[in-house]
């Protein structure tokens, strides 16, 4: 009888541990790419996931980082490399280009006009929709540091955070779905 009780106790604690490890109904996404098409795909999946009842967190890292720059903000006090990256990398979601068929910007312009015609939301509109839906966005501190970006030049976004790999892994570890785009 005592043995049974001990077994029951062990089982109960095991079940509690397992329940703690159940992944949440959450999507954790890395947006590594700064290509317009891939960022569009990531935002479509993110907003769609909220519609499906999921919590969503997106990590913008490396080439994805400049997608969240604010096109109207100017910040000074950068070194030569920082100024170079600032000038060469796209300034915000409206400035990114296609991964294929860009043709010096012509292809991207054509795709944008086609998207408008076909009622596909622009990247900037998708970012605002994501904000409204409560999609969290985390910007990688290391990428910002490498490229010389400052927090003050990033977009105003209600659910914006800054973090590193541990933050991503914590979120990914408790998510049902993880994507790298």
């Amino acid at each position: 009888m005592q043995q049974l009780e001990a077994q029951l106790e062990a089982l109960t604690s095991q079940v509690a541990t397992l329940q703690g490890r159940q992944p949440e109904n959450k999507l954790a996404m890395v947006v590594f790419s700064g290509d317009m098409d891939k960022v569009l795909a990531s935002l479509v999946i993110a907003t769609g996931a909220v519609a499906m009842g999921m919590e969503v967190v997106m990590f913008f890292t490396f080439w994805g980082t400049p997608v969240l720059r604010d096109k109207d903000k100017r910040v000074g006090g950068k070194d030569i490399m920082g100024n170079m990256f600032a000038a060469m990398l796209p300034k915000g979601a409206d400035a990114v280009t296609l991964s294929q068929m860009n043709m010096g910007g012509l292809g991207t312009a054509m795709m944008k006009s086609l998207m408008k015609k076909k009622n596909v939301a622009s990247l900037e509109e998708m970012v605002r929709l994501a904000e409204e839906l409560g999609v969290r966005m985390v910007i990688c501190e290391m990428s910002m540091d490498l490229m010389g970006f400052k927090r003050e030049e990033m977009i105003e976004y209600e659910h914006l955070e800054f973090g590193g790999v541990a933050k991503f892994l914590e979120e990914a570890g408790t998510s049902k779905v993880q994507l790298f785009i």
Binding site: T47, V50, N119, L129
Partner: peptide, 13 residues
Amino acid sequence: KGLACPMPVVKIS
């Protein structure tokens, strides 16, 4: 009508 993915599912939700 006329809305493209993901808008129908977002609006319905």
